[in-house]
Design a protein around this nucleic acid. Structure first.
Length: 601
RNA sequence: GCCCUCGUAGCUCAGUGGAUUAGAGCGCUUGCUUGCGGAGCAAUAGGUCGCGUGUUCGAGUCGCGCCGAGGGCGCCA
């Protein structure tokens, strides 16, 4: 916002240091902590410490010497247009902005740029974010919501910060678990499927739980039961063999049931406003992955133990020349010649790099797979892909239940759809009292925005590496540090603007600003830097924290600073523009968090 | 045994090596509405930042060691 002034002053500081033979340690600018007015600051501690270390210092303690430099620099700078004053304090050089100038620049910029305020300059790299990778033939549970929301939010943040971004999903559509469902459906339930998309998806999950139970050895089972179970097991294995051999009947059954899962998934993604660009099915990379094994063998990266009855392996630590075991040895092909999860991920990475020309590849997958990804990335590096250095596993903690981990096998899951429905019910109940005149349909739409928003925020406001113990009352709380709190700030801002008939096209900030106004202006001006930080660190949490802080500041402003009833028409005009700017930034921040910003609620 | 992540208020969590006094929410206590929407605001209480040690002018933040929790470790995904 004050880049030109900042650069001019930076040049003066450098010039001064050169003239006085001071080795400047580099200038890092940061906002001055708030105390009524605002500006930016930089410190000279590092410079003073460097001097002392080099022995050419004056023998003074570092903080004292830093202060001395700050004072001298201050004298050199003199007065600068639109900088109200320069201050040397405790080793810091503080530049205070002219209040009027800063306030108008911030507000004008936001209102000019609108939904694009905070967007970063176009970056040259193409990023792919892979997330929302549920297994098919199982229902979408609350744990899947975490990868989906985290991935979508990250994709929006990367895109907004200037990267060309591709959203990818990688459903696990094959494996013994999937075949178990197909087998049980075919044997016991064929043709009995419900018609509703969600009922049918959940019904498949129930079949999986039942089938698992049928195939599990039980205590004190009779010989008859044991024989029955073993017969089932043989059938299941046989079906998997047929699938592998491309048996048309089995394949058709598999595709039909898979599509039911995909229909449910697409409906949920649609509900969450998630648009996947590229779908990679696990079954699609199964065959290509076997060719990769041959290539790795030819290049001498992999070793074939099949002649001794073993698998194909990559001794990663040995290839990297590591003494301690860190990446260990990875198996990339079973002794029977079938591929593994790792094999498929290598094949998929190759497709991402060569067919989608991805420079940076982010995998939003839970933390238990961190060794897997470290191995995959190291093998890609050994293989010679330069993009391997920019592969990143965004690992996140599990969502668990108070009684322990969720388990599709045991049927112990909290379904996403159930939570979403409950969220809507609760929001609807809260809204009925507040907005008695709203049409039923509109209220329903907004209730969903509020309910899903609350759920999304409860997930995104926890840092990636933390586990979340799911409690429906916590997740769907509407009070305190929640999405509805932020949405309500947006609604209040909108309400003021609606009553005032909108904000004027221009207004000065010539009045003496109340401290709540100053704080609000300061915070909205930091939104672009916040987006950039979140993108660099791959952390939606940064935006989530920011959005709450902004809402909090707005609510305080709202209570203590009159807008429509301001003391003069000029003050009212300025404040209306500030409210419009705050509303815009709240909406922009919420969008990055996959949360809607309703106008009324 | 080796590797990864983590340990901050009663609970759930933020916290870029730097600005008297480490911040939120929930919960506890108390005030605020003939006012732009009370899903709110304001105030009060609550801390040996797991322990030790080192680096540094300066450590909740970086290194090492220990204690504790969770996860992972050649043919599951």
């Amino acid at each position: 916002m004050f880049d030109a002034e900042q650069k001019a002053i930076e040049a003066k500081v450098k010039e001064f240091c050169q003239q006085h033979d001071i080795q400047l340690a580099g200038l890092k600018w940061q906002p001055i902590p708030f105390n009524g007015e605002w500006g930016i600051s930089t410190s000279f501690f590092q410079t003073a410490a460097d001097e002392a270390r080099a022995g050419k210092g004056t023998g003074k303690p570092v903080p004292q010497r830093a202060q001395e430099i700050a004072e001298q620099v201050k004298a050199q700078i003199g007065s600068v247009k639109d900088i109200s004053r320069v201050e040397a304090l405790r080793g810091y050089l503080n530049l205070y902005f002219s209040t009027e100038e800063y306030a108008s620049r911030v507000v004008n910029t936001i209102l000019e740029q609108g939904a694009d305020f905070g967007r970063g300059a176009k970056k040259s790299e193409r990023v792919m974010v892979e997330y929302a990778q549920p297994n098919t033939h199982h229902s979408f549970h609350i744990g899947h919501a975490r990868t989906t929301l985290l991935g979508e939010s990250l994709a929006r943040i990367m895109e907004f910060s200037g990267f060309e971004t591709i959203r990818a999903s990688y459903p696990g559509d094959i494996g013994l678990g999937v075949i178990t469902v197909v087998w049980a459906y075919n044997k016991f339930y064929k043709g009995q499927e419900p018609r509703d998309v969600h009922e049918r998806g959940q019904w498949l999950a129930k079949i999986y739980t039942e089938a698992t139970s049928l195939l599990e050895a039980k205590e004190n089972e009779t010989p008859e039961e044991k024989a029955q179970r073993e017969a089932y097991e043989t059938e299941r294995r046989e079906m998997y063999r047929k699938w592998d051999a491309g048996d048309p009947a089995v394949r058709a059954l598999w595709l039909e049931t898979r599509e039911w899962s995909m229909e449910e998934l697409r409906d949920i993604l649609d509900m969450l406003d998630v648009g996947i660009d590229v779908w990679f099915y696990e079954s699609d990379v199964d065959e290509p992955s076997k060719d990769i094994v041959d290539e790795l063998l030819e290049r001498g990266i992999a070793e074939d133990e099949r002649p001794q009855g073993g698998p194909v392996i990559v001794k990663i630590d040995e290839k990297l020349g590591l003494e301690k075991e860190k990446y260990r040895t990875a198996v990339i092909l079973r002794s029977d010649g079938t591929s593994l999860y790792l094999t498929k991920d290598l094949a998929l990475a190759k497709v991402k790099f060569e067919q989608h020309h991805v420079d940076r590849s982010i995998y939003v997958v839970d933390f238990r797979q961190s060794l897997h990804f470290q191995q995959a990335f190291k093998i890609l590096e050994l293989w010679g892909f330069p993009q391997a250095a920019k592969c990143y596993h965004l690992s996140y903690g599990y969502i668990t239940l108070p009684e322990g981990a969720m388990s599709a096998r045991r049927g112990r899951v909290v379904l996403f759809k159930d939570v979403a429905d409950e969220a809507e019910r609760r929001a609807l109940a809260a809204m009925t009292e507040r907005t008695p005149d709203m049409s039923v349909e509109k209220r329903r739409t907004i209730a969903r925005q509020i309910g899903l928003g609350a759920l999304a925020y409860s997930i995104l406001s926890v840092d990636n590496n933390k586990d979340i113990v799911f409690d429906v009352n916590d997740a769907l709380s509407f009070d305190g540090r929640t999405a509805p709190y932020i949405q309500n700030a947006h609604v209040r801002a909108n309400s003021i603007l609606r009553k005032a008939g909108g904000a004027p096209d221009a207004a000065p900030f010539a009045h003496e600003l109340a401290s709540h106004e100053v704080q609000l202006i300061d915070l909205i001006s930091r939104f672009p830097a916040t987006v950039e930080q979140a993108a660099q660190e791959y952390r939606p949490l940064i935006v989530a924290t920011y959005a709450y802080d902004l809402a909090n500041t707005f609510h305080s402003f709202y209570h203590s600073v009159p807008v429509i009833q301001a003391e003069s028409a000029e003050v009212q005009a300025s404040r209306l523009r500030l409210v419009a700017a705050a509303r815009q930034v709240l909406a922009n921040a919420l969008r990055l968090l996959v949360i809607q910003a309703p106008d009324v609620m």
